[in-house]
């Protein structure tokens, strides 16, 4: 069931209640109760196949639950940034053409209007990739491609932004820049939900986390959920948690043991 709920709290954008979901009778997630509020900045963490993307798709509204209810606030625009490898980077389009896709076309001819050009230039400028508007998408670096997708999403002027593994396969400084960029957007009032399997580089820096392993194992601040017990339930492995300069640092025991064994 999917409703446009006016009964939701004034700042609730999406709500999942008692949701079970999956594909072709194969249940991936069950007993999910989850609410997205305006201005949230949340990371969904969990191992591969645990249901991170499924949860994202429920929030997007592209997956109907098998059981339970999903509710989306009326009129709230949702934008999505997929993983980079989901598209063919050889596709014959420029950065500007790609970003413009998310603008609905309401005219008979597919001409780009000057105001659309300005809107694209503004959003590219804001994301620090103003110089690449007329380049082919293949000629961008991984970090620039990620920003281009972000630009396409922002052109929709969303209230909620969902990102699937926004930092997988990019280098440390790009990851750092992306984190800052998302932080700024969130500070400007945009609700952001992202999935990540990077506990130290990404999750520990976010204000709010949801740990997923076929159900919601834990939800709260990094201090609340980055604990050995929640992490073991989430990843099925013992992990050590250290405190460094006020930040949580997760150490995978198995990896430590291997590293010690190699010496």
């Amino acid at each position: 069931m999917s409703h446009d709920a006016t009964s939701l709290g004034s700042d609730v954008l999406v709500s999942l209640e008692g949701v079970r979901a999956g594909y072709d009778h194969h249940v991936v997630l069950s007993d999910v109760d989850f609410r997205v509020h305006a201005r949230d900045f949340t990371g969904i963490v969990g191992p591969s196949g645990a249901g991170k993307t499924t949860l994202l798709r429920l929030l997007l509204g592209t997956l109907e639950p098998m059981q339970g209810a999903t509710m989306h606030a009326k009129g709230a625009r949702v934008a999505y940034v997929p993983q980079l490898e989901t598209v063919d980077w050889n596709f014959p389009i420029t950065v500007e053409e790609c970003v413009l896709m998310s603008r609905p076309q309401r005219r008979w001819l597919p001409r780009t209007t000057p105001s659309e050009r300005r809107a694209v230039a503004e959003v590219l400028e804001r994301l620090g990739i103003a110089g690449v508007a007329h380049r082919h998408i293949r000629d961008l670096s991984g970090g620039q491609q990620q920003r281009m997708f972000l630009a396409r999403a922002l052109l929709r002027e969303p209230e909620l932004l969902l990102l699937d593994e926004p930092t997988s396969g990019v280098d440390v400084s790009t990851r750092h820049d992306m984190l800052h960029l998302l932080g700024d957007l969130n500070a400007d009032g945009l609700a952001i939900i992202l999935t990540t399997h990077d506990l130290n580089g990404m999750a520990a820096h976010l204000p709010h986390l949801v740990c997923v392993n076929h159900r919601i194992v834990g939800e709260g601040s990094p201090e609340q959920v980055l604990t050995p017990s929640v992490l073991e339930q989430t990843f099925g492995a013992r992990m050590e948690v250290l405190e460094h300069l006020g930040m949580r640092v997760v150490v995978d025991e198995a990896r430590v043991m291997r590293a010690v064994g190699d010496e």
Binding site: T62, P82, T86, V87, I93, E97, M101, P104
Partner: peptide, 16 residues
């Protein structure tokens, strides 16, 4: 635009 969007990236097109 809609045709271009679904050809390039159907998943995001649907969301948009």
């Amino acid at each position: 635009r809609a045709l271009l969007f679904t050809t390039f990236d159907p998943q995001v097109a649907e969301v948009s």
